[in-house]
Computed example of a mutant assay.
Amino acid sequence: MLRCPLCRSASHTRTSRYISEQTKESYYQCQNIECSCSFKSVESVDKIISQPAPKPVDKPMTVPAAMMKRNTLGRYGSGFQL
């Protein structure tokens, strides 16, 4: 909501569109019936005050050498004991 530039009453957005990634044009209409002024405004990003921390990059999983040894259980494998 912006105030009407003529009578200072509340106005409502009728429509809007993005001109660029950081700029928006909006059309307003005054809610005061005696005024009913229509006007447009341009909103834009002036400065970024804070932003989220960058996400950590996922490293490929490394498997320890001890886990890479193949354990075979059964009749002919190294897990077989007498």
Results as ranks from 00 to 15, higher is better:
residue 32 N to P: 04
residue 20 S to I: 07
residue 48 I to V: 15
residue 78 S to W: 04
residue 29 Q to Y: 11
residue 36 S to R: 13
residue 62 T to R: 15
residue 17 R to I: 02
residue 81 Q to G: 10
residue 77 G to E: 11
residue 7 C to K: 01
residue 15 T to C: 05
residue 77 G to Q: 07
residue 26 S to W: 00
residue 61 M to N: 09
residue 60 P to M: 09
residue 44 S to H: 10
residue 66 A to W: 03
residue 35 C to K: 01
residue 43 E to I: 01
residue 29 Q to P: 01
residue 55 K to V: 11
residue 80 F to V: 04
residue 5 P to H: 01
residue 82 L to E: 04
residue 50 S to I: 13
residue 56 P to W: 05
residue 39 F to P: 02
residue 80 F to H: 15
residue 59 K to T: 13
residue 11 S to I: 10
residue 31 Q to N: 10
residue 56 P to H: 11
residue 23 T to V: 13
residue 32 N to Q: 04
residue 60 P to V: 06
residue 39 F to D: 02
residue 60 P to K: 09
residue 25 E to T: 02
residue 8 R to P: 00
residue 54 P to R: 12
residue 63 V to N: 02
residue 9 S to L: 02
residue 49 I to V: 13
residue 2 L to V: 11
residue 82 L to A: 13
residue 31 Q to P: 00
residue 3 R to Y: 07
residue 9 S to G: 07
residue 14 R to H: 05
residue 52 P to F: 04
residue 75 R to F: 10
residue 58 D to W: 02
residue 35 C to G: 00
residue 41 S to N: 02
residue 48 I to E: 08
residue 41 S to A: 12
residue 23 T to G: 05
residue 5 P to Q: 04
residue 19 I to F: 02
residue 48 I to W: 09
residue 33 I to H: 03
residue 60 P to S: 14
residue 39 F to G: 05
residue 66 A to L: 09
residue 12 H to D: 06
residue 26 S to V: 10
residue 8 R to Y: 07
residue 72 T to K: 10
residue 39 F to N: 09
residue 57 V to K: 14
residue 67 M to Q: 07
residue 23 T to P: 00
residue 16 S to Q: 04
residue 82 L to P: 15
residue 63 V to M: 03
residue 1 M to R: 14
residue 70 R to H: 00
residue 2 L to H: 05
residue 38 S to P: 00
residue 78 S to P: 14
residue 45 V to E: 05
residue 42 V to N: 00
residue 7 C to S: 08
residue 2 L to A: 07
